[in-house]
């Protein structure tokens, strides 16, 4: 599996996409889940605290960008 550093450009893309507007969790997973190579972009973004889920029932669960995510975007000149 790829290490988190090598996925940074893709994690930036994901955080930037969520920062534009909160996205439904199901839409996000549908757009970002990949296989072979399995790219853990979503998992890494959550673990590093850049995005967070809100809501318990799945269809209405939304994903928002966090302060850490905003700072990550700013540090890479994406805002």
């Amino acid at each position: 599996m790829a290490d988190a550093q090598s996925l940074d450009p893709l994690i930036l893309d994901l955080v930037e996409w969520v920062a534009r507007e909160p996205r439904p969790y199901l839409e996000l997973i549908d757009a970002w889940r990949t296989s072979c190579p399995r790219l853990t972009v979503w998992e890494d973004a959550v673990e590093r605290g850049f995005v967070s889920r809100e809501g318990v029932s799945l269809p209405s669960t939304m994903v928002h960008v966090t302060h850490e995510g905003q700072a990550f975007l700013a540090a890479h000149g994406r805002v």
Binding site: A2, C36, P37, L39
Partner: peptide, 23 residues
């Protein structure tokens, strides 16, 4: 040769779908 090929494609600036398609 999947793991070695993944390493190659994750280096550089290809976006996610380009990586999957070209791999």
């Amino acid at each position: 040769a999947g793991p070695m090929l993944d390493t190659f494609f994750l280096g550089g600036k290809l976006e996610r779908r380009q990586i999957m398609a070209t791999k």
